[in-house]
Design a protein around this nucleic acid. Sequence first.
DNA 1: ATCAAATTTTTTGATTATCAAAATATTTTT
DNA 2: AAAAATATTTTGATAATCAAAAAATTTGAT
Lengths: 145, 145
Amino acid sequence: MSNYEVLHDILVRLFQEILDIESKALITSDFKDISVNDMHIIEAIGENEPKNMSTVAKIMSVTVGTLTIAINSLVKKGYVHRERSEEDRRVVLISLTEKGRKANAHHRRFHDGMIQAVLKDLDEDQQKVLVKSLMNLREFFDAYR
Amino acid sequence: MSNYEVLHDILVRLFQEILDIESKALITSDFKDISVNDMHIIEAIGENEPKNMSTVAKIMSVTVGTLTIAINSLVKKGYVHRERSEEDRRVVLISLTEKGRKANAHHRRFHDGMIQAVLKDLDEDQQKVLVKSLMNLREFFDAYR
DNA sequence: ATCAAATTTTTTGATTATCAAAATATTTTT
DNA sequence: AAAAATATTTTGATAATCAAAAAATTTGAT
């Protein structure tokens, strides 16, 4: 395969499959009642102070109404805690439960493994080349936003 | 940002956003009645001999029932031609119409631009490094399949 | 040659993700 | 105090998806 063909294969096909693959990797025995999408919401909520609905919806690039539905299910399944803010009772604050934090750690370990896999066998200079080309890729995509 | 952080940003965030970005880039004035998913089905059908439903469903990794619904809409919108095989009348053969081929070309131009963007500024050796690290990435994902 | 089994596709019924717009609750501004 | 603004949820709709049932056709076994 030429460089062009390898890149086409990776950038087109792998990207198309990535969410699917991630879902198989992430949704293991311990966390089989949630989707990759749920996992990304958990990541967006994070482990610092509680966040309000609008903030998380913005991170996820979905409407707040869409997020409400996902949070309903994550609360019911015990991954997310939801409470009204005492300071401004319009605001709903969401945060991870212990179970949510465990799922988040599981997700992070997957990402770490992925990055290790990419950097494997590359010396410092080669890593620079990789980073540069991926930054080119991000720029290309940013131009469309 | 450290190499690790750049890679995390690209491999995690960009991948999450990629379908969204692709949809904005692809679904322009000329092709605004179809989704990125439809575009990928068009790509899977391709421009060679007509393919049957099972073959395309397999390429897309969806059930044939799911594909039936997508093809209903693509036929109605004039992107895809559907006919019974004369040799085996159980089989349905799908192929691209002229409009479908135009959409496919539009999609391919986007992919080409993407690959140009990645290779930009890289000499032959650097391209090799990039290809190697992306192959590492594919291997990592393949292990989960 | 006939009938049962296998194959290919569509249909059905359900779930999940999504949006825009309406509704609700609360706070801020006038 | 009333009006406007803000944050969230609810509603009603669409699209993508699956598994299982149904329909049409072909293949294989006796």
